[in-house]
Design a protein around this nucleic acid. Structure first.
Lengths: 202, 202
DNA sequence: AATTGTTTTAAACATTTGTTTAAAACAATT
DNA sequence: AATTGTTTTAAACAAATGTTTAAAACAATT
């Protein structure tokens, strides 16, 4: 099956090039070259640049959301179990593809219209999923958006800032990959403290 | 002074266009059109695309770091005062330019070499600045990178995720701007809880 | 009023872009 | 061995890119 072989070679090259340079700066010739393949073959197998981009983006969206939402929905785990599990799995997953969050957030912001193809994912009502319901019973006084922003901020932000921070030579972000891995066990504990924080205090 | 007027018109247009589309997707014609000015004038006043981009980027870097580092260095405030002050000022500042963090982080990642012009900023040794020293006396057991990642993650991440989250129709990120403003008072309290969290617990 | 210097314009420049074409190479089937 | 269908190639396409040119318009000075 030479057909599938070259098609996959192109896809893998597209993953790397789009991820590194973003949609706008990525060239069809970059992809072809990285795949070690004739330029025309990229259009032959994937019709257009926008099309192959959307295929890669859909893949990435599944990784960044598909690995997290099933655990959030699970009615058979406690909130503490969810936080433990998700923090670990998520940091491990993204560590294999550290630019993924940046890629998804930044490409979405630049061309929100081009993401209509993933309306299936967008249909989830967070007020109905387990993790939010569990949070609401503990802290009915706080907007659950805070809870999600805190959890995802603590987990995802280090990946987004890693490049810049480690090249700034501050002396504290030198081996940031090691630091990020430590956070797998720290984040659930910090989240627990945050959950217990009294916000009405003067 | 018509000269300064058009030069500033071009600069302002460049700010908007670069911010919206990023370096690669931004065109010289986009900038000229948005400035209401002839295409050649962009090169006349700013020589090249890369040059005008670096001018804008330097501006943005000053906003995102210049507004935060002076307070971190200040030896005359307590850690609690610093957290209170920075959270408020920073959220207010970035709220006026919500795409700033995304812009800076993503453009840096794509072309780190093009940021050599800001080596002055990079010279700061975080181990010597007040906020880190204060943290170290309270929690010598934890890598200060965690402290900074937590604080900046809680503060900055909501801006990075806002676009995607609010368009996902989850039901909890509807008026995310209001939520973000609430965080000005919440984040210092959460940080205090995080600081007191025992991480050695089984 | 003539001259000088600066700003603006329209046109063109050479490259680079995504995409298409048509022929060649290859594989499989009859 | 001839035919069919698929894959790969080289070349070309039109459109868009950043930049330059040279003339025009304008302002200021002598």
């Amino acid at each position: 099956m030479t057909e599938t072989a070259t098609e996959e070679k192109i896809k893998e090259a597209a993953r790397i090039v789009f991820m590194e340079k973003g949609y706008a700066a990525a060239g069809m010739r970059d992809i072809a070259t990285k795949a070690g393949v004739n330029l025309s073959l990229v259009n032959y197998y994937f019709r257009s640049k926008k099309n192959i981009f959307q295929i890669i983006m859909l893949e990435k969206m599944h990784i960044i959301f598909g690995n997290i939402i099933p655990y959030m929905v699970d009615e058979n785990t406690t909130l503490e179990e969810k936080l433990n599990h998700i923090a670990t799995v998520y940091i491990d997953t993204i560590s294999e593809d550290p630019n993924l969050p940046m890629f998804v957030f930044s490409e979405f912001q630049k061309n929100p219209e081009d993401f209509s193809f993933l309306f299936p994912i967008k249909k989830i009502n967070f007020n109905e999923i387990s993790i939010i319901k569990q949070f609401k019973t503990i802290r009915p006084d706080i907007n659950p958006a805070h809870f999600m922003l805190n959890f995802l901020g603590l987990t995802i932000f280090p990946f987004i800032a890693a490049h810049l921070f480690s090249k700034m030579n501050t002396g504290i972000f030198d081996n940031i990959q090691t630091v990020i891995k430590e956070r797998k066990s720290f984040i659930p504990l910090w989240m627990k403290s945050i959950l217990e924080t009294n916000l009405t205090a003067k």
